[in-house]
């Protein structure tokens, strides 16, 4: 027994030594200044290539074809899909509505959020601040789908709270069923959800105003409007702009909330571009056409991103200066 185990050790030793050498080599390799950064980047590159580069190339390719899951044979169309989209009345109507949606939504959120943000500026020592802020910011944290679902209940014509109040004054509204009111009713939910975001941004922006300048203004007894124009706005501008731009981009993407509340109806009155694209791709199954539209939206988004980064660069340069 003894002999056997010695023997085993004798056999094992050189192998372990070889293994050790192998391990040392591996450690050196993994530690190498040329290998190490590459290893760090490989996973992200794999994700990036598999889920972005390849699908995007695929999409670019498809956008030149008539490719529908309904009919199996694809046909090369060249730029016909793009031509169709640019001449499609529905697309332009949808884009128009999306523009109104973004413009109205973001400006109301910004104005309201900014005013409320100013109000909350001195709230450091308010009792129960943390709970109050959690409640204030809750609308943007919950899933838009849940918000859409319970606003449907609140808007419900028979037993919803809104119509109950309206009925006390002798009226009667079916907010989501009325072609004139549905857009506003859904937009209201969006404003409710995202005004807190602009409050948050405003608080951050106001926080970036140097205390010294504010105190100097206090000492000089500068009137409020002047303080606002000469001290607050120049300092707070960049973060506010980043917030507005983020909101613009997100608002442009809106789908969940409307999909759940109205599916673009009644009529087409709440049909934004993202909903149109979803319908064409996953209901009509016109993937060639949908790819072309998706690509147009992709380019739009890249343009937005460039503006965003431009402002971000400006603001960080400012902070360094």
């Amino acid at each position: 027994m003894q002999a056997e185990s010695t023997e085993r050790i004798a056999y094992a030793a050189p192998r372990t030594r070889g293994l050790m050498r192998g391990r040392a080599f591996l450690v050196r390799l993994l530690n190498d200044i040329r290998v190490f950064p590459a290893l760090l980047l490989i996973p992200v590159l794999i994700f990036f290539i598999l889920w972005n580069v390849i699908p995007t190339l695929w999409m670019i390719g498809l956008s030149f074809y008539k490719y529908s899951l309904m009919s199996p044979n694809e046909r090369f169309l060249g730029l016909r899909n793009y031509n169709d989209i640019l001449n499609d009345v529905q697309v332009w109507a949808s884009l128009g509505r999306t523009f109104v949606w973004v413009f109205a939504g973001v400006s109301i959120q910004t104005a309201l959020g900014f005013l409320l943000g100013l109000l909350f500026w001195g709230s450091r020592d308010m009792p129960g601040r943390r709970i109050a802020l959690t409640m204030l910011f809750a609308p943007m944290i919950i899933t838009p789908i849940a918000a859409g679902a319970f606003f449907q209940l609140i808007y419900e014509p028979t037993f919803g709270v809104v119509n109950w109040v309206v009925r006390q004054f002798g009226g009667n509204v079916n907010l989501l069923g009325d072609t004139n009111l549905a857009f506003g009713a859904v937009l209201f939910v969006d404003i409710w959800m995202w005004t807190p975001f602009m409050i948050l941004i405003t608080l951050a922006a106001l926080g970036s105003v140097p205390k010294a300048e504010l105190e100097a203004a206090e000492v000089d007894r500068l009137p409020w409007l002047q303080r606002f124009r000469h001290i607050i706005l120049p300092n707070a501008k960049f973060i506010l702009m980043l917030g507005i731009l983020l909101r613009t981009i997100d608002s442009f993407k809106t789908l969940d909330l409307i999909y759940l509340m109205t599916r673009g109806g009644p009529g087409n009155t709440t049909d934004l571009i993202a909903l149109l694209l979803r319908r064409q791709a996953f209901e009509a199954l016109e993937f060639g056409w949908a790819s072309a539209l998706a690509l147009i939206l992709l380019l739009t988004a890249i343009a937005f991103t460039s503006i965003y980064l431009y402002i971000l660069n400006l603001s960080s340069k400012r902070q360094e200066a």
Binding site: A274, A281, F304
Partner: peptide
């Protein structure tokens, strides 16, 4: 920044 539905078409 891209609308989610545009991302999901090719991945689908």
């Amino acid at each position: 920044m891209v609308p989610a539905v545009a991302v999901v078409v090719p991945v689908y």
